[in-house]
Design a binder for these strands. Structure first.
Lengths: 258, 258
DNA sequence: CCATCTTTGTGCACGCGTTCACAAAGACAT
DNA sequence: ATGTCTTTGTGAACGCGTGCACAAAGATGG
């Protein structure tokens, strides 16, 4: 997954392990589906299958939230939906700003999954003056100059960065200075932030590279005999302009306007 | 971050831990930047800072690849770029298909970071007949009917799913049947695949929910006294139509055409 | 009211990943 | 050549996360 925490080595926040927190949205999605089908209760086995985890893990995860199940029966779907929503903080409204309205930013702005989970796109921000005022997903784009004011006026604490890599750190700094304490970063850069600010990273390029690694391993499982294990006289010369040479490569998170 | 492996509990492929593999692209990016600035060598300390990890971890990671450093000096940038590229399988060409050319699919098709890492968009596929033939990012969209043929003709082994959730599993099954063995899934669903197929997941909604959790915890750090620790008579009634009620929520990965 | 059967909640062990801390290796100056 | 200084590579300890396996809890039927 294109995931990646930063900071806080593994602070088990109020007793709930990070790994469990990361799975709660998964459970919530499966439970919501059951709820829509008016299923009253579900066993750990069934829910685990729906969420793609094993049942022991699911039960342990739920045990961190409290004893919400009934032995011999299972879990009350509606009740669990409520408890998980509350635990994740989805019962309140989270205004979000998206900075960088290129191809990706626009796609994110149109994302329907925002509103249904308590996230509200409070503003779209872009550095291009030509974009200003132009509506994207029904929301007029505002200029970067007003970033601080927008953050403060709307009480925004979550920011999404979808700018080119070069602008990301600067945007990040301004967001943080204006009061944002959680950032979802789509730009292919490592952001540095002060303590107390959470950053999560989504990086398409990294995901593909990880897949390529496994793909290569699968392909070369029987081909490889005694290939490249030792650094014995590797082709050091033929490497220089092997992967570079084609301009500023991953400079944009997922394509800019054009 | 929006990451998430599936299958293979933690198979340390040929001795390289999964966690290390996930960081190699990060190192590669930092090294490429150094290479473009013509920096000849770099110490573990410097490179670690650039990649946002600590130096001990970086050194251990590199130790799985072999002894490529020089004590007292550091690592040869160009050489390391080559070694990591090779290890990740980026020295070869990876044809990729993107299925589901909505807002997100189009953004991905335009993503510049593809080509620069050995990934080539071999085809764009969509179920909408109206899209067929229409060029996106310079590539004509093809219809889902030809999916199998496209996969086989191009020798595609990596597929990207950017369809609505409802179509994802079906598309996945067809991709796998046609020979795809690595899938990057943007649809908010759990995909089930046979052994030997790798799936990585990117899920915006989940990332935001995780951020919301931490955000809530930060906000309620001093507010909370003895809040919701015990399941004592929780408001079970007032929960039913609290988060549902607004249609099929996260049905699309990151917005459809409109 | 008791027996049986289902399913939860969790104690325990194991393995992966991270970090510390240091010895070995080499560059560089004298 | 010898010594000093820098930086790597890694042994060892620790902590988190996972999964097994089972006891406790409660529903259900007689």
């Amino acid at each position: 997954m294109a995931t990646g925490r930063t900071h806080r080595p593994a602070t088990r926040s109020r007793g709930i392990p990070e790994a469990t927190v990361a799975r709660l949205p998964l459970y919530l999605r499966a439970l919501t589906a059951l709820s829509e089908r008016s299923v009253p209760t579900v066993s750990s086995e069934e829910l685990a299958a729906a969420a793609g985890v094993n049942s022991a893990k699911l039960r342990k995860d739920f045990s961190y939230l409290g004893s919400y199940g009934t032995r011999g029966v299972g879990y009350d779907v509606e009740y669990l939906v409520y408890q998980i929503s509350r635990e994740l903080g989805l019962t309140q409204d989270w205004p979000v700003v998206i900075v960088g309205i290129g191809n990706l930013g626009a796609a994110l702005a149109n994302y329907g999954g925002f509103a249904s989970r308590g996230f509200r796109v409070a503003a779209l921000i872009d550095a291009d003056p030509a974009m200003a005022g132009k509506p994207v997903a029904g929301i007029p784009v505002q200029h970067t100059d007003d970033l601080e004011k927008i953050i403060e006026d709307n009480g925004v604490s979550i920011g999404v960065i979808a700018t080119p890599a070069g602008a990301a750190q600067q945007v990040c700094d301004r967001l943080v200075a204006a009061g944002v304490t959680s950032i979802l970063n789509f730009a292919p850069t490592v952001l540095s932030v002060p303590d107390g600010v959470d950053v999560r990273k989504v990086d398409l390029s990294i995901e593909l590279q990880i897949l390529a690694f496994h793909e290569q391993r699968k392909a070369g499982e029987e081909t490889a005999a005694g290939d490249g294990a030792l650094p014995t006289a590797a082709p050091r010369g033929a490497t220089a302009d092997d992967s570079a040479d084609q301009g500023p490569d991953g400079d944009v998170p997922a394509v800019m306007p054009a």
